[in-house]
Write a protein that binds this DNA or RNA. Structure first.
Lengths: 146, 146
DNA sequence: TATCATTACTATCGATTTGATAGTAATTAA
DNA sequence: TTAATTACTATCAAATCGATAGTAATGATA
């Protein structure tokens, strides 16, 4: 039940964009440097985030990426859902037709309950909160490395 | 963040044992038949459950398995923890030393919060509850196939 | 004691997933 | 036209996963 590296990197990527919200677009190169993650890998991860409208991109020289919404309007659930597939613990919760046991299976119901809790928690945390937690944790020092 | 088949099977295995709690030990063969899961595979899954003292085993002819505790005293968290490794979403929550970013990383804290919610929820659900949910869902009919 | 049914353990395998890299195309400011 | 950037597609090695196979140990019973 571990999160993929893709999702973990994606969250850090979004946090980095949140830091620059309202300013000019950021080069992925710089985020990659600041977060010490391969730029190529990040460039794959950002695609679905752009596709669902969380990120805007500008191509060409002096292009870059920026958040499409205010960080207070973006939740962790949106990010996890798109990068992880969804945030349920078993496939049969999102796609009940994939398992014939669903109608007679109580553990399915358990996983649905727990998945609900996870969704609830993820929905309650915004990018904005993540950025603020970061500031409280390390001050403004680390913020400038982007 | 999907649960492994191992964990899902393990929960069903424990539920089957819970149905027979207080009676004579059950042959894995019969549980395997009732749940339509490979007996060999189940025999691997049950080992850690026995090691942490959730299950008792008797070897030899007329052997079998039985729950070591009352189903109301066994939580889903115990089962998931031993079969899944632990119930955190990232390694750095359980083993902070594995990641140098922990002291400066707010997303680590987010994952810890969510992991806490998951633990909490898993701890609140007992095997007993699972069995009762099953009975409510399908009545006693399905209960007899073990 | 011999037999048979059961649990216990170890090794292995094929398929899938994962994390990552590489190369090329498209776009655009200067 | 050039250089810098995003967009897309393909590929790869390693790890993980689900499952199977075979053998050893145990113990009831005939």
């Amino acid at each position: 039940m571990k999160l993929s590296t893709r999702t973990r990197y994606g969250v850090r990527l979004m946090a980095a964009l949140a830091l620059n919200y309202g300013q000019s677009p950021v080069f992925l190169k710089n985020i990659a440097k600041g977060e010490n993650i391969s730029e190529k890998y990040l460039s794959l991860i950002i695609i679905p985030l752009r596709r669902i409208g969380l990120v805007n991109s500008i191509r060409g020289a002096h292009g870059g990426y920026s958040l499409a919404k205010d960080p207070s309007q973006i939740t962790m659930k949106e990010i996890v859902d798109v990068l992880e597939g969804d945030c349920s613990l078993v496939d049969c919760v999102k796609n009940p037709s994939t398992c014939p046991r669903v109608p007679i299976c109580a553990s399915h119901d358990i996983w649905a309950i727990i998945g609900g809790k996870i969704s609830e928690t993820l929905s309650s945390i915004t990018l904005d909160m993540l950025v603020k937690m970061n500031q409280e944790k390390v001050g403004n020092a680390m913020m400038l490395n982007i």
